[in-house]
Structures are given as structure tokens and as C-alpha cells.
Design a protein around this nucleic acid. Structure first.
Lengths: 193, 193
DNA sequence: GCACTATCCTAGTATCCCTAGGCAAGTGAA
DNA sequence: TTCACTTGCCTAGGGATACTAGGATAGTGC
């Protein structure tokens, strides 16, 4: 009997594609096996269990997202870089909803430490160099940016912005303007309102 | 044989509690039936299917969250209101992770239109009155606030802020300062950098 | 007391995750 | 080339889940 040529890497890639089609949490080991023309039990020689598979998809997505952001960021600075960074996130999330959801998968500390999430944080820090924020404001700004971008795309893709005339694109661009202004005039503790 | 006294309302409440204990997406019909001392098939006279159950939990969580926010907001204005609004969100999300996840459940348009999500949006709009933003900036600001708060608490609860010395509480309070400053000096299209 | 409905049951189907154990294709060494 | 070994796939099966069909019974209203 011919071998199907299943490998851990091909499994992760196929699972990622499947996630974009049916949603990350709806991906099933049996469904993945079917796609490879193989019995579901056969996948357990490549992957420990369903959780292990999801972790691999998450790591794949984190790496892809970091690459995508890095490419968009190359050679840019200031607001230009901020916009490119933000758009890279949103593009990835809207084009690959399953993979983006995977990137949000709850990884344990050791796993996340060896993931591309680190690279991602470093890029954000580099992006902020143009705004000359001292610590700890810089860390706060990183968290705010991540939160806003992540929140925006998740709310957008669960349809939370669909009930107002204003298009999501318009609000997105206004949001980027606002964040740029905020980073330019970041409030410090000794400057009360 | 005595009746267990299962009703749709009690099912939704119990499922919400269960969600906080084991996670929203891990709640199962069988588990819920066990908690009522009843066979899982019996629940299907009260609830159409598992999806129906999740929708009910989502609506419950949305209503609770709106109530919680409304209470926190009562009698406050300006930055005071902003902080209360934001903290009410984060408190609810951290105290009731399962319910908060349920509130993010992907509801169809008709369902969400009859939910407390509307009330929630109106409160945000009321909160922003203190900052005197014209449309469409007001809508953009609402979306930005929702995005940032939602993003922050989800990233925080999936441990994404755990790898830096700065405590999440400190960044949170800095974020609120930043958002207050941003709303006070919201950039308009005719004010380029 | 009787009909009716609502609540719960048993039984059964289909799907999923996962383990145990077997066979055979490919690999490396004698 | 042949033989041992590893590896990729298999069948079989256990346990859990969502859900349906149909039956028994408790409570409700006449």
C-alpha cells in the first residue's frame, strides 16, 4: 500500500488551511486525516494529540504573522511604519481568520517563549523608536497598540461593527491617525489634565 | 420519579457558571445535564441544540456585562466615567472569563440586534459626550475604545503580558491616561502632523 | 376523574479523540 | 542480497459527545 507522505510540517500547514476554511476551533483530527486520505488513528504517529496539533498551528501562524509584519515594516519609520504595521496585522487577520485565531491560542509560557511572539514584540519596540518613548511608557504603548489592533480585528470579524453606517475601513484609518497622535504626544504622569 | 426542575433560564445560568469554571468552549451539554442530575437527552426539550445553548449564554453575558457597566458608570462623567467604564469591563472579564468569552460569541445579526450589545453601545456614546466629539469621530472613538479594552483583557488573560516586568495593572492605568488624553485632543483630518 | 402537556426516560446513531497491536514498506548493515 | 529494524499506515475498540425517536409519568386544567 502506497504511503501518503504525512509529516508533522505538512499536517500543520494543512490544519492551518483547514482552520481558515472552517474556523480554528472546528478543525478536527478526523477531518485532517480525511484530507490526507488516511485513517485518523494514523495521525497519532506524527502528532501526540489534538492539543499538540493546535499548538503547532499556533506556532506556524505566529511565525507567518511575524514574517508578514516584518516585510511590511521594512524600510519604514514613524507614522508610515505604524500604518504598515497595523495594516499588516489586519490584512493577515482578515485574510487568514483561522490562522489568526490560532495565533491567539493559549500557549504555555515555555512554548510562547520559543515562538515568534518574541520577534513580534521586538518589532513593535523597534517601530516605537521613532516616537522616542522612555520606559515604562514604551512597554505601555506596545501593549496598547497590540490591544487595539487585536481588539479591532476580532470585533470586526465577529460583526460587532456591522450595525453602524460608518465603514470599518474608515474607522480603522481614523484609529491609526489617533494612535499616531497619541504616540507623538504621550501623556506622562507629571502632566495632569 | 421527581422532576429536576430544569428551565431554559436555569440552564443558561448554570452553563454560564460552568463556562467560568472550565472555559466557554469546553462547556458541554452532557456536562450540564450531569450538573442537573439528568440525562443529556432531557435537555433537548428545553434547548434546541448546543449552539442554541451557547447563544443563550452569550445573551446572558452581554446583559450582565451591560448591567455591570451601567452600575459603574452611574453618576460619573469625563475621565472619571471613562475609567469606571474601562474598569467595569476588565473586572467582569477577569472575574468571569467564561461569560466574557461567551459575550464574544459570534451571533447572527438578528440576535445581536435584540441583545444588550445595543445598550452597551449607547452607554459608550453617552460616556463620550463629555469629550464633545462630532460624528463620525464619535463612532471611531467608540470602536477604538471597545477594541482597546477588549484586546487588552483578552491578551492579558491569554498571558501575553506575562513576559515583561511591568505589571498589567500599571500598563492598564497608563493606557487609561493615554486614552483620556487622546479623547481630549482627538485629531481631525484638517490637523495633519 | 380524565385528557393533555411537559418533563424526563431508554435506546440508538454518528462522530470524535485516542490507545493497542499488527503488517508491510522502506532503510541500513552484514 | 538478505536480514533486522524503524516507521508509516492499518484495523479494532473504548469512551465521550451531540442529537433523534419514541415511550412513560407527573402535573395541570377541565
Amino acid at each position: 500500500m502506497a504511503r501518503a507522505g504525512v509529516t508533522v510540517e505538512r499536517l500543520a500547514v494543512a490544519a492551518a488551511e483547514l482552520a481558515d476554511e472552517v474556523g480554528f476551533e472546528k478543525v478536527t483530527v478526523a477531518m485532517l486525516a480525511r484530507r490526507f486520505g488516511v485513517r485518523d488513528a494514523s495521525l497519532y504517529s506524527h502528532v501526540r494529540n489534538a492539543h499538540d496539533l493546535r499548538v503547532r498551528v499556533a506556532l506556524l501562524a505566529l511565525a507567518e504573522l511575524a514574517d508578514h509584519v516584518a516585510t511590511a515594516l521594512a524600510g519604514r519609520a514613524g507614522k508610515d511604519a505604524l500604518v504598515a504595521f497595523a495594516n499588516a496585522h489586519r490584512d493577515y487577520a482578515l485574510r487568514h481568520p483561522g490562522r489568526y485565531a490560532a495565533a491567539q491560542f493559549d500557549l504555555d509560557d515555555d512554548t510562547i517563549a520559543t515562538s515568534a511572539a518574541i520577534r513580534h514584540s521586538e518589532m513593535t519596540r523597534a517601530l516605537l523608536r521613532g516616537y522616542h518613548l522612555p520606559e515604562p511608557a514604551q512597554t505601555d504603548a506596545i501593549r496598547l497598540l497590540h490591544s487595539t489592533f487585536h481588539g479591532y480585528v476580532t470585533l470586526e470579524s465577529t460583526g460587532r461593527f456591522r450595525h453602524t453606517a460608518r465603514t470599518p475601513d474608515a474607522s480603522w484609518s481614523a484609529t491609526l491617525d489617533a494612535l499616531d497622535a497619541l504616540l507623538t504626544h504621550w501623556p506622562h504622569a507629571n502632566q495632569p489634565t
